[in-house]
Structures are given as structure tokens and as C-alpha cells.
Amino acid sequence: MKHSAGLLVHRTGARGGPEVLLAHPGGPFWARKDDGAWSVPKGEFDPATEDPAAAAAREFAEELGSPPPSGPWHPLGTVIQSRAKHVTAFAVEGDVDPATLRSNDAEIVWPPRSGRVITVPEIDRIEWFDLATARRKILAGQVPLLDTLERLLETGTGQSSS
């Protein structure tokens, strides 16, 4: 079982409702996929040796090229993204400009089993989405994270005092 940790950054959008920052994976496998392909910026960690919040902060910085918003952070829980991956996520209010973010690169074998290694950005797009659109864009296994964030925002728990 693989474990990933991520950070769901949210803000109040231009129309007054919440928006979330999602990342689209890079590489040829994801190039033509949109709905159901986006994700909370996240990465793998070993739960035996690393705190999920520390992993989420590290992965946000690595994958987006910017330190994460300072907080406060609110746990969203752990979801089962697939049979092989669990994702632990945290919510934080913040406003970052996707145009200023830059992903790190990763090497992958492409086409699969070809032995040919190519370098691709881990993330090729980063965008803000309202919650309704985010539910359509995000991987199905991560939809419960949006539901939990929405409940937090409705109770006022997920918003900072600034």
C-alpha cells in the first residue's frame, strides 16, 4: 500500500464561493485526460518515518515550486484513492497565483515497458476551481476531501481569522 499526503488550498472566489487549487498530472498518459484526472497536490511518504503534514508541505513545495500557505491547517482525513494508494490531506486557506508556480520534473518509462525514459513535469497545469467544477475534475477517490472541506467551511472551521 502506498501513502501520499497533500494540501488542499482554498480561497474565496470572485463570486463569493469557495475555490480550490488542483493540479493536473504531467506526462503523455494524462495529456488528453481532464475530468476525473486532477488532484490535490500530493506525494508519497512513509507513515512509519514521516508525519503526514510534513510530507504534505514538502510535496507542495516540490511539486509546485513554492512554499505552502502557512496555515492554520485543518485535517481532511485519509481517503482511499485506489486499491494501491491512500491519501491523507489537509486544508489551508491561501491565495497563490498558478502562473507563478512551476513543477519539478520526473523521469518515466514511455511508452510503458519500452525501456525508453523521458522527462516530464510532475504537474503540467495548476488551476483554481469552484467546488462544483472541482468535483468533476478531481480523481473520484479524492471527492470526499472536497466534501469534508465544504463541511469545514460551512461551520467556519476551515477559514483563518485573517
Results as ranks from 00 to 15, higher is better:
82 S>P: 07
81 Q>Y: 02
70 S>G: 09
16 G>S: 05
158 G>F: 00
108 I>M: 11
4 S>R: 15
29 F>I: 05
104 N>W: 03
98 P>D: 14
142 Q>H: 13
149 L>H: 04
8 L>Y: 07
67 P>D: 10
140 A>T: 14
17 G>Q: 14
79 V>H: 07
32 R>A: 11
88 T>Q: 10
62 E>W: 01
38 W>S: 09
153 L>T: 01
64 L>G: 11
67 P>G: 04
159 Q>E: 14
132 A>S: 15
146 L>F: 06
98 P>L: 15
24 H>K: 12
102 R>Q: 13
155 T>L: 04
67 P>E: 13
25 P>A: 09
146 L>R: 06
23 A>D: 04
59 E>N: 07
142 Q>P: 10
86 H>A: 14
36 G>I: 08
17 G>I: 14
73 W>M: 00
49 T>E: 14
46 D>W: 08
150 E>P: 04
81 Q>C: 02
130 D>L: 12
117 V>T: 10
20 V>Y: 03
58 R>V: 00
77 G>H: 02
84 A>Y: 07
62 E>A: 07
81 Q>T: 11
62 E>G: 08
93 E>T: 06
132 A>P: 12
71 G>Y: 00
83 R>T: 13
32 R>G: 07
42 K>T: 07
71 G>M: 08
117 V>K: 08
141 G>N: 08
35 D>G: 14
51 D>Y: 05
42 K>P: 00
69 P>R: 04
15 R>Y: 00
55 A>Y: 01
49 T>P: 05
15 R>D: 14
153 L>R: 03
70 S>D: 10
41 P>A: 03
128 W>N: 09
133 T>N: 11
108 I>T: 11
53 A>R: 02
105 D>P: 04
75 P>S: 15
66 S>M: 06
102 R>A: 14
131 L>T: 03
86 H>G: 12
19 E>Q: 08
57 A>L: 11
96 V>D: 10
81 Q>G: 05
32 R>F: 02
21 L>H: 00
157 T>F: 00
38 W>E: 08
83 R>G: 11
57 A>N: 12
12 T>P: 03
20 V>R: 10
156 G>A: 11
65 G>Q: 08
82 S>I: 10
22 L>V: 12
70 S>F: 00
72 P>I: 06
99 A>K: 10
158 G>C: 05
103 S>F: 10
115 G>E: 12
111 P>Y: 07
66 S>N: 09
86 H>V: 12
74 H>I: 01
110 W>A: 09
44 E>C: 09
145 L>A: 00
46 D>S: 13
157 T>V: 06
98 P>F: 13
113 R>P: 01
119 T>A: 15
31 A>N: 05
69 P>A: 02
35 D>E: 15
23 A>E: 04
70 S>V: 03
138 I>V: 05
140 A>Q: 13
83 R>Q: 13
148 T>G: 08
46 D>R: 07
76 L>I: 07
18 P>A: 04
109 V>K: 06
90 F>Y: 11
1 M>R: 13
26 G>V: 12
46 D>M: 07
123 I>P: 01
